[in-house]
């Protein structure tokens, strides 16, 4: 008897998803593509595997296992490909699906969970009866130890995909890892030219900070690569200090920094909304202020 199907690639995700699965019952796992399969067998008694990693193939595999095992819950970590695959299984059977959830609880066949709502400005709690599909927000669930010694079974899904992959292009990266950063200096439209970002980069190097940015800097102007992009559609960050220059404080940007401990904003418009959403505010022209700050920091050494 299987209660939960966990779709997972990485051990770090497995340890969190197992915590959720155990609240419902007995799990098995499905893994895909380039996964940490040997490590996954520590967490599950059975791990099904497909070699492919595109959403069509994942969808076919989940559908096959869903029909075979009849689980009450299908769960995974939120990602674009899993959103694609899960939404299709949900569509076929009119199953409820929720994405980016946390605080999962079960009572009988009733389930509740929370998720971010209204572009990150609210938290909603939804209530639903199983069977159901869930995609979980990473790093918000306690980890479980794995002490299984599971078996691996290859799953063949045939070549039934109607979407052909022509090419994959790796994204150019700026070499930052904002999710792990303790100190982020973030830049916005207050900068007039790409070259001016050097002001922020010099400061960041001196202060040991990583550079983040608002959406326009990465998406519209393309002055920085997407790994710098913070917000609703960018990275969710949790540094000790988030120091921003020339960012107005749109709710979609704030959605990325709700877990930041201390938020500091420098903006030359004293009415900028960011000042209501910052711990410390400085009304100043960044072009005057950053060089002074940099000089002062240099003198400290």
């Amino acid at each position: 008897m299987v209660d939960v199907l966990v779709v997972v690639q990485k051990e770090a995700d497995a340890s969190e998803l197992l915590t959720i699965a155990k609240k419902v019952g007995e799990p098995v796992a499905l893994t895909y593509g380039n996964s940490e399969i040997e490590k996954l067998t520590k967490y599950f008694n059975k791990v099904y595997r497909i070699k492919e990693d595109d959403p069509n193939s994942i969808f076919f595999a989940i559908k096959t296992l869903y029909e075979k095992l009849n689980p009450k819950l299908v769960v995974g970590m939120s990602s674009k490909n899993l959103k694609d695959a899960y939404s299709r299984l949900a569509g076929i059977y009119d199953l409820p699906l929720a994405t980016d959830i946390f605080d999962f609880n079960v009572s009988g066949s009733k389930v509740t969970y929370k998720r971010s709502f209204l572009s990150g400005r609210a938290i909603e709690t939804e209530e639903v009866t199983m069977p159901l599909l869930l995609l979980v927000s990473p790093r918000k669930t306690q980890k479980s130890e794995g002490n299984s010694n599971g078996s691996i079974e290859e799953l063949s899904i045939g070549n039934s995909s109607n979407v052909v992959i022509k090419e994959r292009k790796e994204k150019v990266k700026g070499g930052v890892n904002l999710e792990a950063a303790e100190f982020i200096i973030s830049v916005g439209r207050g900068f007039k030219n790409k070259d001016d970002l050097k002001l922020a980069f010099d400061l960041a190097e001196l202060a040991g900070a990583q550079i983040g940015c608002s959406r326009p800097i990465a998406a519209d102007l393309k002055w920085l690569t997407e790994d710098h992009w913070v917000g609703l559609s960018g990275k969710k960050v949790a540094p000790k200090v988030y120091l921003m220059f020339g960012i107005s404080g749109a709710p979609q940007h704030l959605a990325g920094i709700t877990d930041a401990k201390t938020v500091i904003a420098v903006n030359n418009d004293k009415t900028a909304p960011i000042f209501k959403n910052a711990d410390y505010g400085i009304v100043a022209d960044l072009y005057q202020f950053i060089p002074i700050l940099t000089k002062k920091l240099k003198e400290r050494h």
Binding site: P96, S116, A122, A278
Partner: peptide
Amino acid sequence: KKKLAEAKVLSVKRKQTMIEGKSLEEVA
């Protein structure tokens, strides 16, 4: 099939303290 049981406005309370000074040097 889903019921919206509750929705709370996310209130991230920030201190909203302005750092001021006679000069930008002092602010820095």
